[in-house]
Nucleic acid binder design. Structure first.
Lengths: 186, 186
DNA sequence: TTGACTGTACCGGCTGGACGGTATAGTTGC
DNA sequence: GCAACTATACCGTCCAGCCGGTACAGTCAA
């Protein structure tokens, strides 16, 4: 029970706790996230949880940071090509990949929002940054902004489990935008 | 202090309570909405609050219903003209009007979501309904869907206090969409 | 090599406060 | 005289954060 072949037991437990927090938030509702429930879900005691995250706020903060770093890493790689419209294209691709993964990105984010809206400040800042980059390197800033907003809406719907458009419709929507982007009409 | 020129004291108090709930949700965060805080904000005793809404769940339900009825009334009126693209045009106009009003629509909705995501089911259903109508009476369903999603994104951002685009940018975005709709390009 | 000591990772019980809801007795205005 | 409240007290539950442990791996000195 005390072997340690994994790279880091600590990092693994941290990750399990973050995953557990998202699962619980999705199951019980963003406002009903309790530390006890998270600990139980992760198979860790409450003390153990508080060892890794000294307060609930820190846990939610980590949840936001984790979400951000995943998105950011995926984007920077794709965006580095430097072609025109690279930023918006990467943004759309990233969404498609994220959507294709079975794991619903689900919202520990909503739990963070429920507890303290300020926790989402980093996300707001990053989103503004994305839009600026998207407009900067696009051939048609207005249209690129439209594409950005469409992706934003699709993500928001997934987060809220809304499903106004199904998977296929969302994909065809993205395809439609991509085609317009390459045609470059004004 | 005890004048009563309004049509109904009961309805007035109900409205004040709903407004107070939204204000508190915005100030304390959606997950920190307490009945005591709402009663205090509205200048009503806790007993009075529970007289009108026998449980917190009922209050949140009423918040959702209130939001829905306002949106619906505004839309049906504008949509009744029967012209092509009437639905999506009405949807966009409605957003602009709502945005122009000083009152941030703010989200008692988020409070409802935090407590129990199922409370938003009526909103999801209505949103699906809107999209269906929008596609049905539009000259270019794909483009109408894009417009719908853009408005959706702008609303979501307002709700989350994101402000990625400012008022003027949002308006110019809507204007851009409107122009495309009237040109009727494929 | 052994025994004292240290730091890390984690356990689980407890407490104090917040909050939803109940109860009840009184008050005001139409 | 009833509907629409006010005022206050109270109960039970939930929950964040705290704290005193435990297990164990590594270190280092004698």
């Amino acid at each position: 029970m005390t072997h340690d072949t994994a790279p880091s037991r600590k990092a693994d437990t941290r990750m399990r706790l973050l995953d557990a927090a998202e699962a619980v938030a999705r199951r019980l509702g963003p406002g009903n996230l309790s530390l006890d429930a998270v600990a139980a879900e992760a198979g860790v005691s409450k003390g153990g949880l508080l060892y890794h995250f000294p307060s609930k706020s820190k846990l939610l903060e980590a949840l936001v940071a984790h979400h951000l770093s995943r998105l950011d890493a995926a984007l920077r790689a794709e965006e580095a090509t430097g072609r025109p419209n690279a930023a918006i294209t990467a943004y759309m691709d990233q969404f498609l990949q994220e959507a294709a993964r079975q794991k619903p990105p689900a919202s520990g984010l909503l739990a963070a929002l429920a507890e303290n809206p300020q926790l989402l400040d980093p996300i707001r800042a990053r989103e503004r940054d994305f839009l600026a980059r998207i407009r900067a390197d696009s051939t048609d800033p207005d249209f690129a902004t439209v594409a950005f907003l469409v992706v934003h809406a699709l993500r928001a719907m997934k987060m809220l489990d809304t499903e106004v458009l199904d998977e296929a419709e969302a994909q065809s929507m993205i395809g439609w935008l991509n085609r317009r982007l390459q045609d470059g009409d004004t």
